[in-house]
Write a protein that binds this DNA or RNA. Structure first.
Lengths: 342, 342
DNA sequence: TTCAGGGGTGAAATCCTTTTCAGCGGCAGG
DNA sequence: CCTGCCGCTGAAAAGGATTTCACCCCTGAA
């Protein structure tokens, strides 16, 4: 029924050498060329494929690295994943993707798998700042890099963007365009990116209006997904005095926000819309959207490079790389109708 | 430096039992409740986490299943992935995602990893009909399910949609809407879905125009990505007699097609556009797009269920499940301007 | 000529868990 | 009272690779 498995022993027997020699042939030990060739031939003839599980057990480390992301349906993270893959491509490591679905329990399970499978390294965009526990991994010396989101207290290398600054620049731009009642739809409490983008928004408002401006009636926490954005925007539109612009803390929620606006018969730049992160397939959207552009691919690539570096480097001091965002001004923040009318 | 690893031996010693008993506690063997409890306590106290690699080696099977998809940036596949995950969720298996990037070499490596890591099962949307070789996996008795795309000659369960029928229905709809010069932008040669959707298109044209209609001047093979769709549509628009409608064989290429149309100052339904597969975040697109809707999530869920069934089921005969597509008629295929003018 | 060193090799230990096997003790039935 | 069976347990084997260690042989230097 099941074909018997070809082991290193079988190859050794066929080639008339010891298993140790076969192992050396495949791992670059010192072997006489003639012998090496006969081992190669025997292996090919038998269709030998090394048992990675046995190898991992012995070496105490597999040749797979895990990338754990919170939303596989968000193009930001899939682009980031491409960056990780492309960087890992040049090594002998394979990348596997795990989707935590913004669920700390699922994430915990994947972290456990990564630990139990003795993965060579882990790159994680944490589902939560407080509940994501990287302790077991770091305690066992597994290299870990936090990307995009940073878990509190984690002693790991990190790559992220300047969330606070980006949020501030975005909000300032809306102010300068003439909008006055600027709302913020941010992500879940407990995600570092949510909080920092929101903090940037607040900082810009405070700078403009003075210290008394910390009014949170225009702030909504949603779930970083389309539905959440839609619901939040509906709420904002139903306020007695609805906002005339909105800073949305991620790309998918922006889609929901635009939907809600259309429902209400409003379109940018009548209501200003500024997205933190490019809306996917933005070419489809009219009017074109202003956005804080995120280097998603580079985020992934940098994280992978940091991980690789840590994997052979050893005990260099921890580092955090902060990548710059850029504000891309387009039609959706052209200024409120009121301003044009005045 | 590195914290020493807690093994089942350590737990056994701490609890005053043998390693075998500890193993039984964690795997549901017969153990006296009192003893079991003391083992649990010792394990918790020491922070024991089982070494999955050793377990896999002994059991000749890990508790991870691989999902190999050809394009992680395509929402069709990420939705499919969600379906797989949700189905696997109810078991103790973990799903890891591998992105082959439509590259048969990368795919081969991932298949090798899946084999070498002794994964419990593999679900694969094949990068190629001819070059994807599932032989090594099936020969070793690893359960495999082909999803969406089917590799030729593979002796595996499969889940797909009625590509041929869907392509035929789509094309017929364009004909009925009054379009006469209908183009087809399909995927790469060698992908089963490309070929069958194209075949459906041809069948509809032949049925309408008679056997002589097999003119391929309106057929373009692209790469299932945005850029490919854009380039193909540009080509079609530069023909002496450009098409008045286009059937696009996947969602991402449709985005490119729409871009090319906008460049040329044309918009649906002036030129009819019908997409095989929903365009992501279709709510953003005006006019709304007619599409052959694909049950992407169900495709994944069904594949996972088939895999699970095969994993305990044993040697039931191979099966192929074909899910139905549904044609969703919207504005983009309202009929050509010429017809309205006439 | 002798000795040190190094390349090439195989036997055996090692990684950690699961599983088989044999043994022990207790209980039920004859 | 004896036998048979069943539940529980631990010792030991098994799974397949890597790596250590000891050894042999050969070369080059003293």
């Amino acid at each position: 029924m099941r074909a018997q498995v070809v082991t290193i022993q079988d190859v050794a027997r066929a080639a008339g050498v010891s298993p140790a020699t076969v192992s050396r042939v495949f791992n670059g030990g010192n072997v006489t060329p003639a012998r090496a060739q006969s081992v190669q031939r025997a292996a090919a003839a038998l269709g030998f494929a090394p048992n990675r599980v046995a190898r991992s057990l012995r070496k105490q480390r597999s040749s797979v690295i895990a990338l754990i992301i919170p939303d596989i349906e968000n193009p930001f993270f899939t682009s980031l994943a491409r960056g990780v893959e492309d960087a890992a491509q040049r090594t002998s490591l394979s990348v596997v993707l795990c989707n935590s679905d913004e669920d700390t329990e699922k994430e915990r399970r994947y972290l456990e798998v990564a630990l139990g499978e003795q993965m060579a390294g882990v790159i994680v965009a944490a589902a939560s700042r407080d509940e994501t526990d990287l302790g077991p991994l770091t305690a066992r010396g597994v290299p870990v890099v936090a990307v995009d989101r940073r878990p509190r207290d984690a002693e790991v290398d990190a790559v992220r963007v300047d969330d606070h600054h980006g949020g501030e620049v975005a909000t300032r731009h809306l102010l300068q365009a003439g909008y006055r009642r600027i709302a913020c739809v941010t992500g879940p409490e407990g995600a570092s990116t949510s909080e920092e983008r929101l903090a940037g928004y607040r900082a810009a408002l405070t700078a403009a209006k003075g210290a008394g401006a910390s009014d949170d009636s225009y702030v909504r926490h949603a779930d970083f997904r389309v539905e959440g954005g839609r619901a939040a925007m509906r709420e904002l539109l139903s306020l007695p005095e609805p906002p005339d612009a909105v800073f949305v803390a991620n790309n998918l929620m922006t889609i929901g926000v635009l939907d809600a606006l259309r429902e209400a018969g409003r379109t940018p730049p009548d209501v200003g819309v500024l997205s933190f992160g490019d809306v996917p397939w933005a070419s489809l959207v009219r009017p074109s959207l202003s956005a804080v552009e995120l280097p998603s691919y580079e985020l992934g690539r940098t994280a992978a490079e940091l991980l690789l570096q840590r994997m052979d480097g050893g005990a260099a001091p921890l580092q955090t790389v902060v990548l710059r965002t850029t504000l891309q001004v387009r039609e959706s923040t052209g200024g409120p109708a009121a301003a044009r009318g005045a």
